[in-house]
Amino acid sequence: MKALFWRELKLSSQVGGGMLTGVLFFLTIVAVMPFAIGPDLKLLARIGPAVLWTGALLASLLGLDRLFQQEREDGSLDILLMQETPPALLVFVKAFAHWVANGLPLVLAVPIFGIILNMSPIGIGATMLTLAVGTPAITFIGAVGAAVTVSLPRGGLLLSILVLPLTVPILIFGVTAINGAVEDPAPFLPPFMILCALTLFFSALGSLAAGWVLKQSTD
């Protein structure tokens, strides 16, 4: 499993400059927002968490269509699935490695973007924390979409359509938790705990469902 994890990590950071593309895409979204909204720093500070979360959500969908595709094409996916390991565990490891390669850089890039958006240090910290907890859930939901669209020639676009509506709860609780940390009357802990619960729930559900689909498609 450890070997698989490292292999995955290497693979997904190589694909199209993986890490860098995601962060660059994230930067583009964040940079484009002020052009649309205007340079009002107060307003930007207020909507900053929402902008960062939306950007991270879109950016983490970016490489998902390649999660299983390449390995399906060269046949190594079939070999992996034929082994003793349950497919759900396989998907879990793959998705987690994908998150470390693509999701974690987004989290680490938040401080820079937060300064551009005039956010307070507490806000930036809260955004990093919620993104670190919340983006894995997006990856795990995305794994189901990736497994389902793996055989399609232009699956990436369809994957986004299928996955985005399902990520609504994560977005809501992520941004709510940040607002809770920044604004005084609103609580931070309850939405944050729900976010944690969602991530745990989807890591189980997503792995099981995606593993099942992959197993079936190789039969």
Binding site: V148, T149, L166, V168, P169, A209, V213, S217
Partner: peptide, 21 residues
């Protein structure tokens, strides 16, 4: 199979979406 899985994941998620919204 793909449709069934997506529908099922959606059906589990709809109450969560409702509740979070």
């Amino acid at each position: 199979r793909s449709l069934a899985i997506i529908t099922l994941v959606g059906s589990i998620n709809i109450p969560i979406i409702k509740f979070s919204v």
